[in-house]
C-alpha cells in the first residue's frame, strides 16, 4: 500500500513483547501530521514501549510501522529518519559529561557541517526557545533541576528541527506551574515549528489543554482514539474511570 502522506505515523497489527510477556497485540494507530497526540493507559499498558518501538529502540515481533512514509523494518530508512524526529526521554537523558550547549551540538555536529560559531549560535537559540536562561548553556546536567533538564533535553530533541517530536511523560515530576509552562511551551513550539507531537503522558491537564487527540491503550491494543469530548462520552469502564475520576473532574473543571 502506498504511504499516505497526511500520516506522520501509521501502525498496523503491531505485536511486541519481552520473553513470554506480550505487551501489544494487533495494535493499529494513525498519527496525523501536525497534531498533538496524547497516549494514555494504565501502568504497564506499554505506552513507553510503544514509543520506544516507533523510534526503533525495540524491535516489534509483528506488524508494520511507517513513519513519514518510511517503513521502519528497513534499517536504511531508520537512519534516514533519525534526523527527522526528536525524542525527549523521561529525565532528559542528557549526556552527563557534556554541558547543555555541547549536548545540543551533538546532533548538529553529526548531521551538518556547521562551523563552531554557527553551532554556538544555534545552540543558544534552541536554549532560548525552550525557555532556559542563557547562563544554563555552560552548565552540566548534574547542575540543573529536573525541570531544567527536561527543557535542555527538549532543546536537544529540537536541535535538528525534527518533523515529529516524541515526548515520554514530559510533565512527570514537575510542579504544577512548571508543568503548565511546559505544556504551553510544547504547544507554542508545535505552532511555530509545525511539529507533530507524540506524547506519552499521565497528566490530565496536559491532555486537556494541549492534545488534539487522545489514544487510549488497554488490553494490549488501542482501545479508543479521539478528541477529549469523545473520551468523555466513552462507555469503556477504564476510560470512564480515568476521565471521570476525581482527578479527571478536577482537570476538566480547571
Amino acid at each position: 500500500m502506498a504511504p499516505t502522506p497526511e500520516l506522520a505515523i501509521r501502525i498496523r497489527g503491531l505485536r511486541t513483547g519481552f520473553g513470554d510477556q506480550i505487551i501489544h497485540d494487533g495494535l493499529d494507530l494513525d498519527v496525523h501530521r501536525g497534531e498533538i497526540l496524547g497516549v494514555v493507559g494504565g501502568s504497564g499498558s506499554g505506552k513507553s514501549v510503544l514509543l520506544r518501538t516507533i523510534v526503533g529502540l525495540n524491535r516489534p515481533r509483528a506488524g508494520t510501522i511507517e513513519v513519514l512514509g518510511h517503513d521502519l523494518a528497513s534499517r536504511r530508512d531508520v537512519v534516514a529518519l533519525e534526523a527527522r524526529w526528536g525524542v525527549l526521554f523521561q529525565d532528559g537523558a542528557l549526556f552527563s559529561s557534556l554541558t547543555v550547549d555541547e549536548n545540543i551540538q551533538v546532533p548538529l555536529k553529526e548531521h551538518s557541517t556547521l562551523g563552531p560559531r554557527m553551532l554556538d549560535e544555534i545552540a543558544a537559540l534552541k536554549v532560548a526557545m525552550v525557555g532556559l536562561a542563557p547562563d544554563a548553556c555552560h552548565k552540566y546536567p548534574a547542575q540543573l533541576s529536573g525541570g531544567m533538564r527536561k527543557r535542555a533535553g527538549l532543546a536537544r530533541a529540537l536541535a535538528l528541527d525534527p518533523e515529529i517530536l516524541f515526548l515520554d511523560e514530559p510533565t512527570a515530576g514537575l510542579d504544577p506551574i512548571g508543568a503548565a509552562a511546559f505544556d504551553r511551551l510544547i504547544r507554542q513550539l508545535h505552532d511555530s515549528l509545525g511539529l507533530t507531537v507524540f506524547m506519552v503522558t499521565h497528566d490530565l491537564d496536559s491532555l486537556h489543554t494541549i492534545c488534539d487527540r487522545i489514544a487510549v491503550l488497554a488490553d494490549r491494543k488501542l482501545e479508543a482514539v479521539g478528541p477529549m469530548d469523545v473520551m468523555l462520552r466513552s462507555e469503556h469502564p477504564w476510560i470512564r474511570e480515568y476521565f471521570h475520576g476525581p482527578r479527571g473532574r478536577a482537570a476538566l473543571a480547571g
Binding site: D101, P116, L125, A128, P134, S192, L193
Partner: peptide, 20 residues
Amino acid sequence: AEQVALLETVRANDKPFEPT
C-alpha cells in the same frame, strides 16, 4: 505564514549569550 512565524520565533529568542 509559517516562515514568518518561524522568523518571529527566532527573533523572540535571540538572547545575548557567552560563546564558549
